[in-house]
Each structure stands twice: as C-alpha cells, then as structure tokens.
Design a protein around this nucleic acid. Structure first.
Length: 462
DNA sequence: GCATGATCATGC
DNA sequence: GCATGATCATGC
C-alpha cells in the first residue's frame, strides 16, 4: 500500500485504535513472546502493508513520516506514563559529525513521527495489548529549539572525541541512549581511538510521558521558556537568568521581592520557593513542561560556612531483594543517575550555628547537574556490585544498647568510603524496618550522596 | 500508611 | 567535631 497523503495515512492509522496486536497480526509472529521490538514491524507489515526496512529515510518515505509503536502504562495513582524512552535511529558517529542539524540523520528520519501508543499491562500477552491512540507528532517550536541544542551537545561530544562518554542525562529531551545486543556492541568514533558504546537517538522517557499525558490524558503543562528566548540561550542559561537577581539575597529579602512566604523546613518549601521565583505560584514543579520533559528533579542544598552541607543527601529507600537479584544495567541506581538531571537549589549560612543559632539563610544560586558517565561507571557500578555481594553474604547486624535506645550497627558502605555515596538509615522510628533477602529485618535504608561530593558538585563551573 | 526531605543523639 | 545510626514532620 502507498499512502498518497498524510490524511490518508492518518485515517488508516485511526482504524487501529481499539485493536489488539492479535487482531492486527497476519504473520503469526505475535505469538512469539520472546521477539522484542517486533510490534512495530507487525503493524508496519500486517496493518499498513509495508515492507520493513532499516534504511536511513523514514518508514513512509514518500510522506517523510516515521512509524513508532510505543507502550504507555497506568500508574498506581491513576496517571499515565510512557513505559520506555522512544528509541530512534542509531547514531553513526563517523557520519553524524560532519552534519548540521538540518542534514543530520536524526532530523532526516524523525522530523515527523506517526506514534501509536498501546497500553502495556503486567502479565498480559503481547497479542492482547491494545492500541489506544494513533498520533502524528510534529515537534513544536520550543521543543525543537531544545532538541536542536541537545543534538549539538551530542555531536559536540563526538567532535571532542568523547563519544564513549555520552550519557542520556547530558541532554534535555533528545538523548543518546545505548542500543545494541549487549554491552560489547561498540563502534568506532571519528576523533578518538577509543571504541564507544553503540547509541541511538531517543526521546527521553520523561519527554514521552509528557507527550502521552498531553495527547491521551489531555493534560496541560505550563512552560517557563519560549521559542524566542530559546533562539539565543540554552535552557540552562534561561533557568540561571531567572534566578540570578535573587542570588546573595536572604530568604527574607527574597520573600519581599517575590511576594512569597516560603517556610523553611516545610515540606513544600522547594515548590513554593522555585515556583514563586519563576512567577508561577500555585503550579506544581512536576506540572512545568520543561522540567517534566527533561526529567529534572529538585534538591535543596544548605551549605555551612565551610562550603559543605551539614547533612548528606538522601534518595530512594533500598529494596535489598531487588538489589541482590538485579543486574547493574536494570538497576534503579543505574537508571536514575543516567537519566535524571538534578537541579540543586543552593543556600548558604554565613555563620556557624554556634556563632549564631538564629542564623539567616542566603540564596547562592542554582546548579543543574547530572552525574557524569565516568562516575556512574567508575564509582556507582563497583558500589552496586559491592553492595550486591554484601547482601548475598548476609549483612552483619550488631545490636548494642545505648542510653535511651538500641543501636544496630552494620557493615553497609559508610560515608567517605568511595568519595561519592553510601548507605544509611532513613526510617520513621526504631520499628520501621524492612526485610533482608534472608528474612532478617533491618531499619529502612536509603541511598545517600556524600555531603563532600555535593560540595564539589556545587563548586564545579560548567 | 508510607515515602521523602530534614534533622537529631550518642559515643568515640 | 564527626561518624553513624535513629528519628521527626509533612503531605499525599
């Protein structure tokens, strides 16, 4: 079949809504549960009656439209999320380096995407997944500006001979995700002898989630930048500029300037503070378009006069059984730090608590950061396996009685052991425990970044 | 009820 | 004063 126009194609595509892959498949391949990534091919062949190709032009070449079939899932709280990033074409490091954005393989192939969202459900056969929405995606102007800068970051890294250090969190919406049979899938790069992991362009999972919520759930998000600003500045620069005028000011002054009353210590302090300074009071940070799409998470940092926070920084609580059974590549740890950007909102005390217990907090600035791949691979990965072995061997628990409470010492990795991260408790009280794989109970534990490491991150300039 | 950000208490 | 483990407070 040849589709003469986009409307022809979209009329046909709309017929798929409500159909299952079992309804669509004429080849019988849908029954092969192990065949991964063939859902798109089945739709292409059985539904659109197109021959599958892996050419560099778009699937519907005469229309310049690329077909993508991608899963969404419903969360416990009823919201919708994309189940995965949307993987696009593989990056040929050797070729892409000579291109402009307009002539890049990314843009040639993915300018327009026919996205068919299907609903993924646990324990349901592939044949019974249902297509819920067919949607012709064209990048809106402000997204495209950010994506173009993302592309430049990716190609810039290739030009520096750093293709082997590409990381998904380097960019905002368009990312270079690993793609290959296994971690041995490597290829040459033009400006370095080192072989680099094979990677493909992808739209981040967070971007796809925002898209699915807009298209399927009709959710609207609020933007804080616009196409005109993005013409001349990166998203990071715009973000910094929005906070600049508050730098060096005390919380009290800022409250007066911005007309907000953030109560330090309150749970929604960050929400109130950031949205207040951005001038979008009442909007949750998660409902801000750019933060949602780029998967930017927020963390407050309070530096003591010595430039180091008083406390380490906690993240998610640890599921020891998961940690023991998972491979690094599938772990929360790998996933989180290779795909999340952290926006540190930095405050400082100018006096120690001893000098002045009533000390005031001053806003120092913001820092948008993601963990470099070298650190993820060099520090986090060994840490992951070290802890995995420890769990397998059985974590030591040594109860001792203190004055007023029972302390259970353990041999989990301590702060400063690797200069980056450690495990320490985060629980409600002494009885807030979690089971180890061997059945013993331990106070709930969390993953923490060392405060000294936070201090170094904040001081880096880039 | 629980996750999460924040902070405390004790012993060396 | 710091390391380590414990616990609080809030908000969904």
């Amino acid at each position: 079949m040849i589709y003469k126009s986009r409307s022809d194609l979209m009329l046909k595509a709309a017929e798929a809504e409500g159909m299952t892959f079992g309804d669509i498949d004429k080849s019988g391949r849908i029954l092969n549960e192990r065949a991964k990534g063939h859902l798109g091919q089945i739709v292409e062949e059985s539904f659109f009656e197109y021959k599958v190709n892996s050419k560099s032009e778009a699937d519907f070449a005469e229309l310049g439209i690329e077909l993508k079939v991608t899963p969404v899932r419903t969360n416990k709280n009823g919201t919708l999320s994309s189940k995965e990033r949307l993987v696009l074409n593989i990056i040929n490091y050797m070729d892409e380096v000579d291109k402009e954005f307009e002539t890049s393989s990314f843009w040639r192939k993915n300018k327009e995407l026919l996205i068919m969202f299907y609903e993924w459900l646990p324990k349901v056969k592939r044949a019974d997944y249902k297509i819920i929405k067919s949607y012709l995606h064209e990048f809106e102007e402000s997204d495209l500006k950010i994506i173009k800068k993302d592309w430049e970051v990716i190609v810039g890294k290739i030009k520096e001979g750093l293709a082997h250090q590409l990381s998904e969190a380097d960019t905002n919406y368009l990312a270079a995700c690993t793609k290959g049979a296994n971690k041995a899938s490597k290829r040459e790069q033009p400006c370095s002898e080192e072989l680099a992991m094979q990677r493909a362009y992808s739209l981040k999972q967070s971007y796809m989630t925002a898209l699915a919520r807009k298209i399927i759930s009709k959710q609207t998000l609020q933007t804080i930048t616009n196409g005109k600003e993005l013409e001349n500045f990166t998203f990071e620069e715009i973000l910094v500029s929005k906070f600049e005028k508050y730098e060096g000011k005390s919380l009290e002054e800022i409250s007066r300037m911005a007309g907000i009353v953030p109560r330090i210590g309150s749970k929604n302090f960050l929400q109130v503070f950031i949205s207040g300074l951005l001038g979008i009071k009442g909007t949750k940070l998660d409902d801000i378009d750019e933060f949602a799409k780029a998967n930017i998470q927020f963390k407050t940092v309070r530096l003591e006069p010595n430039g180091i926070p008083k406390e380490n920084m906690s993240f998610k609580n640890i599921n020891f059984t998961e940690w023991m059974n998972e491979e690094w590549e599938d772990s929360w740890l790998e996933n989180y730090f290779s795909s999340t950007k952290l926006l540190f909102v930095v405050f400082e005390y100018k006096e120690t608590e001893k000098e002045n217990p009533e000390r005031e907090l001053f806003f120092k600035g913001i820092k948008l950061w993601n963990m470099p791949l070298t650190t993820i691979e060099g520090k986090l990965k060994p840490f992951f396996y070290e802890l995995q072995n420890l769990i397998k061997e059985g974590i030591e628990l040594r109860p001792t009685v203190q004055k007023k409470r029972t302390i259970v010492n353990n041999n989990l990795p301590k702060a400063k052991a690797n200069g980056i991260c450690h495990i320490r408790p985060k629980a409600r009280d002494g009885s807030d425990k979690v089971a180890l794989p061997d059945g013993r109970m331990i106070s709930k534990q969390s993953f923490w970044l060392d405060k000294e490491y936070i201090s170094v991150i904040i001081q880096e300039n880039n």
